[in-house]
Simulated assay, not measured.
Amino acid sequence: MADGTRRPLIAGNWKMHGLKVPAARTLGEIIEGYDPALRAGVDLLVCPPAPLLHMFSVVAVGSRVAIGAQDCHAEPLGAFTGEVSAEMIADAGATMVIVGHSERRAYCGESDGVVRGKALAARRARLTPIICVGETRQERDAGQALEVVGTQLFASVPDGPCDFVVAYEPVWAIGTGLTPTAQDVADMHAFMRDGLCKRFGAAADGVRLLYGGSVKPANAGELLAIADVDGALVGGASLVAADFLAIAGAAVS
C-alpha cells in the first residue's frame, strides 16, 4: 500500500496483443471507466505494442490515462533495424516506458547493464522508466530471491535522480496464475525500499514500487494492501477494460 505520499500507479502491459480497431475500443472503455473517483486516487497507464503508440496517445488526449511503451533502444538513433528509440517513443506521445521486463531479459538476453542503458535513454528522452526485476522459481526455491533481485536492482537502476518506477515481477508468477504469498511480496518490497534508501537517501521514499505477476481483480485488493506496494504492473487482465478498471478500483478502496 502506498504510504500517502506515493500515488498508486496501475500499469497495463499489453505485450504483443492488439489490432487497431478492437484495441481502440478497449482503450475507449478504459478512458470512459476512469471516472472522477478513480482519477482522484490512482494513476492509469496503458502500454500497447509500438505500432499503436501514436494512435493511443491521440485517443487518450485529455483523459489523464497515460500511454507508455514496452521497450526502447539505448541509442537515440542509428543503424539499428527494427529498434525504437526513447526519443521516438516520446515523439509518439508516450510518457513512460517499461525496461528490463523478464521476457526481454530471457528471450532477448538483456543484461542488467543493457537495462540500465535503456533506463538512461528514457531519462534522456524525458520518459519515466519502469525498471523490472524478479527471480525465477529455481532461484526462489534455492533461497536466492533477495540476492538475485538485489543484484538486478543495484545494476539496472542508474545513478542520479529518483525519476523511475520499479516493478517487482517474480518470473514464475508471470502469466501462470501463481502469486507469491502476501508475506513474500511484503518482504521483497521492504527489501527493495531499504536498498533504494541506502543508495539514494530520503529521495527513494518517493519511488513507486509496483508488483506484477498474475495480478487479477480477485487478488488485487490483497496485493495492493501490502506495505510498500504502490501499484501493479498488469499483464493479461489489462486487455479487458472491466478487469483493468477493477484492479485500479482496488488501489483506492
Rank of each mutant, 00 (worst) to 15 (best):
C132H: 10
L146I: 02
R126V: 12
Q152C: 02
L146G: 13
I130H: 02
T128I: 06
A145H: 13
R126W: 00
R126S: 14
T136E: 13
C132D: 06
S156P: 01
T136Q: 01
S156H: 08
D141R: 15
G134L: 05
Q152I: 11
I130D: 09
Q152N: 10
L127Y: 13
T128H: 10
T151S: 03
G143F: 06
R140E: 04
E147I: 12
A142E: 01
A145R: 14
L127G: 01
I131S: 10
Q152E: 14
G143W: 12
P129L: 15
S156M: 00
A155V: 04
R137N: 13
V148E: 08
D141C: 11
I130G: 06
Q144I: 03
E139N: 05
S156T: 06
L127D: 15
A142D: 15
R126I: 00
L153A: 00
P129Y: 14
E135T: 08
C132V: 10
A155F: 10
E135S: 10
T128V: 08
Q138V: 11
A145Y: 08
L146T: 11
V148F: 05
I131F: 04
E147D: 14
V149H: 04
V157Q: 04
D141E: 15
D141K: 14
L146H: 07
S156G: 06
D141P: 01
V157R: 06
A142G: 14
Q152H: 04
D141H: 13
R137Q: 09
R137Y: 07
T151C: 05
C132W: 11
Q144L: 11
V148N: 04
A142I: 07
A155L: 12
P129F: 15
Q144G: 01
Q138C: 09
C132A: 02
R126E: 15
G143E: 00
C132R: 01
A142R: 09
V133T: 02
S156N: 03
L146Y: 07
Q152V: 11
T128M: 01
P129D: 09
E147W: 08
V133G: 02
L153K: 04
